[in-house]
Design a protein around this nucleic acid. Sequence first.
DNA 1: CAACTTACAATATCCGTTATCTGTAATTTG
DNA 2: CAAATTACAGATAACGGATATTGTAAGTTG
Lengths: 208, 208
Amino acid sequence: MRETSFQPLTAATVLESAKAQIRRFGEAKTNVTDVARDLGVSHAALYRFYRSKSAMMDAIVQEAMDDEAHLAAHYIGADGPAAERLVAMLLDLHRRKRDRFVGDREIHDLYQRIVVDRPDMIATYAERITNLVADLIDEAVRRGEWHIDDTDVAARVVRDAVTVYVHPAFVAQLVTANAPVEAMLHATVTTLIRAFESSMRYGNMKEA
Amino acid sequence: MRETSFQPLTAATVLESAKAQIRRFGEAKTNVTDVARDLGVSHAALYRFYRSKSAMMDAIVQEAMDDEAHLAAHYIGADGPAAERLVAMLLDLHRRKRDRFVGDREIHDLYQRIVVDRPDMIATYAERITNLVADLIDEAVRRGEWHIDDTDVAARVVRDAVTVYVHPAFVAQLVTANAPVEAMLHATVTTLIRAFESSMRYGNMKEA
DNA sequence: CAACTTACAATATCCGTTATCTGTAATTTG
DNA sequence: CAAATTACAGATAACGGATATTGTAAGTTG
C-alpha cells in the first residue's frame, strides 16, 4: 500500500503502484481499480494522468526503454577505443534485458507483450538505439579507427545482428536454455568490428 | 476433395489433405474429421499414420524445415567462391520464408506457432542449418578463402546475425513494413564475410 | 476551480452449460 | 488379418447470461 507513506498523486506514483501490482499479480490480474485502491484514491482519479489502462502499460515499458537508451547513450563521445565501447554498450543492453527476465519477470512479460502489440513503439525504440550505434560508429570513423563508407547501413547491420541478444523473447529463450549468451554476443560484435577495422564498403544501398 | 481422384491412403496423402484444409480454413478451424472427410475415410483411419493431431501439424512444419535444409545443403561443396555461396544460401532461406508468408499465409502461421510451442523442433532445425553453414565455412577455410580459428563459433555468429531475416515472425514484420530486407541481409552477410576474409580469431570460446 | 468522487454506460471477462472434437478400443469388411 | 469403421469416453472448445472492469461525465469538496 502506497497509502500509508503519504505521497502526492502524480503520474510517477501511479506508475509505481501499477508496477507494484503487476509484479505481485501479473498484468492479466492487474486492474486500474486495484492500482487506485493501492494509492487510496478512486480509479477515476488515475485517468487524470493516463487516458487509458493501456496507456499506463505503455508508459511502464516506455520507461524501461528510456532507461535502456540512457544506458546506451553513456558510451557515445566517451574515451577509449570504439571497439571496446560498442561491445560494452551492447553487453549492457543485453544484461538489462536479462536482468529483467531473471529478476523482474512480470515486467519483462509486459515488455514482451508490447513488442508484439505495439510494433510502432518498438520501431521508434529500435531507431533510437540504432542512431546511438550510428553515432558511435561515426566517431570511430572520424577518429580513423574504422573505415566505413555508409555508417547508417553499418549501424543497421549491427542492430540486426544483435537483435537476437536484446529481444525480450530471445533473451528469455537463451537464458532459459542456459546458452553462453555473453560469449556469443561478444563473438558476434567482435566479428562486425573486425570488418569495420578492415574497412567496409556498402556501396549505394537504398535507405530503409 | 481428394476422394474423386482416387489415391491410396498414405502418410503423404494425409498430410496433403491436412495442408489443403489449413490453407482453406486456417489451423484453428481445421479438425481431423474434416481432413478425413476430404480423403473419404473415417477420422480414426488417420491415426494409423499420425498418433495425434499435433503430430500431424508438426509433420507439416517438419516437411517445410526439411525443404529448407535441402535448399541450403545445395550450396555445400559446390563451385564458386564461399562468399557468393553463403550470400546465396542465406538469401534463399530468407526467400523461402518470405514466399510462405506472402503466398501460403496459413502454413506460415502454423510454422510461426510451432516456433513458439516447440522450441525443441526449432533448436534441432537451427542446429542443422548451423552445421551446414559450418560446413561451408570449413570449405572456405580449407581453400584458403577465409581465415578463422573456430569455424563452429563463426557458424553460430552467422546464424545469430541472420536470425532476424529467417525467423517467421521477423520476416512477417519486415515484409509487412516494406523494409529493404534483401539489401540489409546482403549488407549483414557481406560484413561477416569481410571479417572472415580479413581473418577472425575467436580464441578459446566455450561450446554451447 | 482544481482535484477528486460517485454514478453510470459500454465493454470485456468469467463461468457453468452444451456441443464438438480427439483419441481409443471393440467390431466389421474384403 | 490388415485396414478400416463404428461406437464411445474423456478432453476441448463454443455459447451465452451473469459479473467485473474500463472509461466518461456529472456532481462534490476543500
